[in-house]
Design a binder for these strands. Structure first.
Lengths: 301, 301
DNA sequence: CGTCTTAATTCCGGAAACGAGATCTTTTCA
DNA sequence: TGAAAAGATCTCGTTTCCGGAATTAAGACG
């Protein structure tokens, strides 16, 4: 029994899907399948019942889920307990709007419980600006979106800034175009029947990915909005397509079913300066890693 | 952080020696060294202080020790909890005298706490007889000593019986010749200055290994005794050399320091019939595996 | 004070495990 | 009924892991 298998198990259990879980933990589906099978063979019990393409926990799987959560929590606690000096002081964290909404709440709650002496300063912003702030020491670290490598050339200064920083993938988001309800399904930007694209600030990587995608076939204007709620409201008017990751869309239980189109996976990176990590940073880093692939809702523990 | 690394860590912590720990968990010392170093790097803290050739836990190592024990216990509990039907009924276990004395108490205590519905029947005997009893279904499983392969030819029927059974190494014993205090240290059987060898029954593998060793240079008679206490008492008379594993010798805090000579490592195997495992057997097997390499004294939990 | 022994570490080659992609099968949805 | 999607299976290249040999360092003993 391996802790990494348990992490994978938790992801599958909370997504009820091998494919989703694979994305969540940053692996390939075939790998997830085999690790689950190994775990089942090791425990000599079947954890999931595969009826059709749904993965639902068996009764044994349910009881194991409880232990799996406790095991991961205990491992994290052990990790933190051996840290020679308890972190304290201030940690300045930059984050994208979307990450703050969907993935951070669970991690931040846990972090606060573990290290009440650290005061966390959260700054929201676009990936570009955040990266620059980390470089200039206005922030200790930031969660930003990795620009697809096809976009690297068109913004070489951003690319250079990233190279000067240490980085590590922590989440994978499924970036979506959200269409008004009733809009016919689309294959490319040419099929869009809206007047504009709704997104956040210009420095936002998600926005730039979407604009890049739209530019190939049509010339839509982008209307800039301040929040994802505003974007959704704008989509509801019928004449706008919104840009946001699936995790954010899932979060706001929107009354109507919306039509979506996938722009593909986008990694969220934790970036920080080399050789300059406040003691609280390592603790934050570990809590984030442990949150990887977990359900957005807090683990019941 | 890997559960097998933690198992290795526990062994090193309780033996304060990588060589001993390597034997206890059935690995090679270099491997143990590497795994400990990996663990230390992963946790970014040093767990042991290497002053000279002693491995002593650092303060951080001490705190990690607590978590390591809890982690292993929780993993074992998880394993048992998913077992679809709680084992019950009877499990007939055969064991060598020595294993019953040194290794089993901790495991049996834990097993009883976990599965009070199983009534364990313990039978003591020599490896040969135990193997035969498992084959004939007089026992469900047994803990026996693996005869060195150089001895395989001279007792081919025992060898054939073992081949018919499933087997798995669970402990490694350090087999000793125990000499009377004051006896000069020896390099081979030729240096013995005693009148006889004290051991258990003829079917006992340890006895046969020792007789094999003694035969090469001298022709000592073997005096048969009923227990390890009797053997030690006999050694104390000054005219006998005893045969027993180190774990047993360590157990009886004998007043005088005794001179010993190593006959080498001997594996203890758990043997059982293929395709015939009572539900309680799997549970017993798992508890035994978890006990592997742990300190003889019960883990403080 | 040197030599001998024992223990830990380092180094290296073979073996096993692992992860990614391609392919196959089955389910579901249009 | 056909197309799309998801899970399982297979293969292959890579990484990791383990065991043995060589190396280094620390005590033991004369």
């Amino acid at each position: 029994m391996d802790l990494s298998s348990i992490e994978i198990f938790l992801a599958v259990a909370s997504d009820r899907s091998v494919t989703k879980a694979a994305k969540a933990v940053g692996r390939v589906p075939s790998n997830v399948t085999t690790r689950i099978q190994q775990l089942e063979e090791d425990l000599d019990v079947s954890l999931f019942s595969r009826d059709g393409k749904k993965m639902t926990l068996t009764r044994e799987g349910e009881t194991f889920l409880g232990y799996a959560n406790r095991l991961m929590a205990l491992a994290l606690e052990a990790r933190q307990a051996v840290r020679p000096l308890a972190p304290s002081g201030t940690l300045r964290v930059g984050t994208m709007e979307s990450t703050a909404a969907s993935r951070l709440p669970a991690a931040l709650t846990q972090f606060n419980q573990m290290w009440p002496d650290v005061s966390l300063h959260l700054t929201m912003g676009a990936s570009r600006d955040l990266a620059r702030d980390v470089l200039s020491d206005a922030l200790d670290c930031a969660l930003i979106a990795r620009p697809p490598k096809t976009m690297g050339e068109e913004d070489s200064s951003f690319d250079a800034e990233l190279k000067a920083l240490e980085m590590e993938p922590v989440f994978v988001e499924d970036l979506l175009i959200v269409l008004p309800s009733g809009h016919p399904s689309i294959k490319s930007a040419a099929d869009l029947r809206v007047g504009s694209l709704a997104a956040l600030e210009p420095g936002c990587t998600y926005r730039r990915i979407a604009e890049n995608w739209a530019r190939k076939s049509s010339a839509l204007p982008t209307s800039e909005l301040g929040s994802y709620h505003a974007i959704l409201a704008s989509v509801a008017t019928g004449n706008t397509a919104g840009v946001m990751p699936r995790s954010v869309l899932d979060l706001m239980h929107w009354p109507m079913p919306v039509q979506t189109h996938q722009l593909g996976p986008v990694e969220t990176l934790l970036v920080y300066r080399r050789n300059d990590r406040p003691s609280a940073f390592n603790a934050f880093h570990e809590v984030l890693s442990a949150t990887k692939g977990r359900d957005i809702r807090l683990a019941t523990n």
